[in-house]
Simulated scan of single mutants.
Amino acid sequence: MKNKHLTCLAGIVLAAATGLSVAAPSSSAAVAGGHVVRPGESIQKAVDAARPGDTIVVLPGTYRESVLITKPGLTLLGTGSRTVIRPGAATGNVCATAGNGICVLGASGKPVDDVSIRSLTVSGFKKNGVWSSWTDRLTVRKVTSTNNGTWGIGQERSTRGEFLHNTARENGDAGIFLANTVDAEAGATDTLGAEIRDNTLTGNRIGVTARRVRNLTVQDNLMTGNCSGVFVVGDESRPRAGAMTIQDNRIIANNKFCPANPRLSAIQGTGIVLTGSEDTTVRSNLIRNNVGSTPLSGGIVLVKSFVGAPNTGNSITDNVVEDNQPADLADRDTGTGNTFVRNQCGTSEPAGMC
């Protein structure tokens, strides 16, 4: 979009966010290459009218609908906590039917490229707050996703996603969830450098779940009050999950209790768990006061995957891991090539790793 278009839209959003009077156009009206949606109007109608590359500005208000995006290059831009999307009628587009708030959906061989979702709140959906499948370079920035039934922000079958400066709290499963696929068995997806950075993840089952994916970074996030901070899930499939970096996160007091389910034991007091991962780097994280008594409890924990696949070749280095129970570092696996070096910790399983 041309600079003058961005300037015009930025002015509208700034005026709305600061309470200044602005003569916004009527429903879904085009404004210098963009669209403005006001309370009582339909976000979906604006999305349907937009062309690739357009921006949809959603003014302060509560919008009761689900939003489906299938066009490349669109930006959905709210005004932070004042733009709220909540469930409406569970009919209409496939996003609403599935119980999701905002969906970005492509297809096999035809990913949706360069969509951006920014500065809004998605809350109370039966399934996921923000969900995407078959996308490339999706950006989710400064989104608050709360009290959704499964994932706060989730993605599958996608590459080069960026999840930056978001808040995900009190969601039924993970605050942020990246996976190869959720409806079939397959080897790990190479995300081509997906990034989960500077997010605040609280009160979820798990802060970040990376399930059967490779080549991504989880960095500079705050995770507290979840059952577990980070959960890396792999198995015996090829390619293996892993080849990721988890660094510079603050993972503190994730002591919520989550009961067992058919695939996992109960979770409580868990900082970072690696299951069936290979060649993952865990470094320079602050992991404190994660306390529990489940098989997954501890500061940094390595365990076999659900199907018994071991962790191999992972590096746990330069972390501050303190006051976690039953141990700061726990290698409860039989995999090979996993190294624990220069970590500041008090207790380990087996002894001698601190």
Rank of each mutant, 00 (worst) to 15 (best):
Q44L: 11
S116K: 13
V115L: 01
E156W: 05
H35A: 14
T146N: 09
I117S: 00
A89L: 14
G172V: 09
S66N: 01
G34F: 03
V67W: 00
A168L: 14
D54I: 11
V122N: 03
R157L: 15
G53P: 03
G80A: 13
K71M: 02
G73V: 10
L59K: 09
I176Q: 00
V47N: 04
P52Y: 15
F163N: 02
T83K: 02
L77C: 13
D114M: 10
V143N: 11
S42L: 14
G109D: 06
S66H: 00
V57D: 07
W131F: 15
S108G: 15
E65R: 09
T97G: 09
S42N: 09
V57A: 14
T139D: 05
G53N: 08
E162M: 15
G78F: 00
V37E: 00
Q44K: 11
D136V: 15
G99K: 05
F177N: 06
G154F: 00
G33R: 04
V143D: 07
F163T: 03
R64I: 05
I176R: 13
R82W: 04
G73K: 06
A96S: 11
E41S: 09
L68F: 12
L120G: 01
G154I: 01
T75G: 06
V130L: 02
A107V: 14
V47L: 08
L105H: 13
D114G: 08
G33A: 10
A89G: 14
P39F: 02
W134Q: 08
L68A: 06
T150Q: 12
E170L: 09
V67M: 03
D54L: 05
L138C: 08
I153T: 03
A50Y: 02
A168M: 10
V122Q: 02
C95A: 06
I43R: 07
G149Q: 03
S133D: 15
